[in-house]
C-alpha cells in the first residue's frame, strides 16, 4: 500500500496514494494506519484526494482506524472525492467523522488558533 506523510507541527497528514480503498486493500490499510498512529502523537488527517473508489470494506477500515486512535487523539479525513463522499453519506457515517474540504484546512486552522 502506498502513502506519504507530511508533518506540520502538531498535524500529521497521511496521503493515501491508491485509487481504490476496497476489500483487497482494507486489511493492509488498517495495519499501515495503525502503525502510523502508534508512531506519532499528533493529530492525524487522512487525505483521500487520490481515492476515487471506496467500498464498504474500505469504509469499515477507516472506522477501525478512528477507533484505534481513541477519543484522546484527533483523527480527521479530508478531500473526499464525490464517489467516496457518497458512501460516507449514504451509510450516515459522515456524522461520526470530522471531514475537511482539504487537508490544508487542518494546518491553516491550527495556525489561526495559535496565531
Amino acid at each position: 500500500m502506498e502513502f506519504e506523510t507530511e508533518n506540520h507541527n502538531e498535524v500529521l497528514i497521511v496521503r493515501l496514494l491508491e485509487p481504490r480503498l476496497d476489500a483487497a486493500l482494507s486489511v493492509r490499510f488498517k495495519e499501515a494506519m495503525r502503525e502510523v498512529a502508534d508512531e506519532s502523537t499528533e493529530e492525524i488527517v487522512l487525505d483521500l484526494a487520490n481515492v476515487t473508489f471506496m467500498d464498504s470494506s474500505g469504509l469499515g477500515a477507516v472506522v477501525a482506524v478512528m477507533k484505534h486512535m481513541g477519543r484522546e487523539r484527533v483523527f480527521k479525513i479530508a478531500s473526499l472525492t464525490p464517489a467516496v463522499d457518497k458512501v460516507f453519506k449514504l451509510t450516515r457515517m459522515d456524522s461520526v467523522f470530522q471531514i475537511l474540504e482539504s487537508a490544508q484546512d487542518a494546518i491553516e486552522g491550527g495556525l489561526q488558533e495559535a496565531g
Binding site: 472506522v63 478512528m66 477507533k67 451509510t91
Partner: peptide, 17 residues
C-alpha cells in the same frame, strides 16, 4: 441507514454496510 450513536466509539460499526 440510521445515524450511528457516537457516544461509545467502540460500538461504531466496522462492517455490515
Amino acid at each position: 441507514f440510521t445515524e450511528p450513536a457516537t457516544d461509545d466509539l467502540e460500538q461504531l460499526p466496522e462492517g455490515g454496510f
